[in-house]
Design a protein around this nucleic acid. Sequence first.
DNA 1: ATGAGATCAAGAATTATTCTAAATAAAAAA
DNA 2: TTTTTTATTTAGAATAATTCTTGATCTCAT
Lengths: 138, 138
Amino acid sequence: MPDFSGFGEFRMTKQRRVVYDVLVDEPRDHPTASEVFLRAKNRMPGISLATVYNCLETLTHAGLVKQVNLDRDASRYCPNLKPHAHFFCSECEQVFDITPRPSADPCAVWELPEGTRIDHLDVTLKGKCPACARAGHP
Amino acid sequence: MPDFSGFGEFRMTKQRRVVYDVLVDEPRDHPTASEVFLRAKNRMPGISLATVYNCLETLTHAGLVKQVNLDRDASRYCPNLKPHAHFFCSECEQVFDITPRPSADPCAVWELPEGTRIDHLDVTLKGKCPACARAGHP
DNA sequence: ATGAGATCAAGAATTATTCTAAATAAAAAA
DNA sequence: TTTTTTATTTAGAATAATTCTTGATCTCAT
């Protein structure tokens, strides 16, 4: 069982652990709150949707999971704490984590006025994943 | 009056023109649909919110405006057709357009599996704009 | 054990957006 | 121009994700 000290006043309750485990265990496919709810019920039948929302918010605040927003679709959640962006395949509608090339700084490509302070970067690429791109060009 | 030929079967109706003008005229501050609605009513009191939504969708489809989504907030709209990203100041909550440095390719910094096809890039930077950053460090 | 505070559950409330159906306006045909 | 067809606008209902509210339950320090 991982160590969650260092995450402030955060308390790992039974429900939060279930929600967290759902995200960490396979399939790690960036589920929405409702999808997390369905999977969580398999492990803890009495859990409520409201609690899943609460847990996801708490876990996000604690920094254990990341909220992923694509356009205005339902938020998705991901336990990958390394800095990364997302690739969305418009064909199979899957979300893939992508990482910056070593030594590349994704912020550096943008022209920003002198004195701007960057706290956070949010990147989504859209297109076709290799499998779907190949299927489309038979 | 600009020429809108070359935008397919698109028809520039009175309402669409009003909505478009609201976006193009100052302040070009990335308003939400409701904000566009309020401004549009000044120019055409009878216009309805549903129509504003319809027009924004049509204009977006026609490629005359871009829909800008920050997290799960209400969509904002922007008439800047040049490729650009957005900077959101967490202090003054304004949205600024930002452009890539000449000759920089924002997609190139990301590690993507061989064969991935990129159609679209969506970037939001968050932090403090120069004015707010300075105000925070007095 | 007891009491204070955090967490959970169920359902109501909210909000941005989409849908529906009828009315209106514009374009095409006669 | 009149008629017919088609697209657009409107108002309000419907939807869907999320948040809020309230009371019940749990946890932990005393």
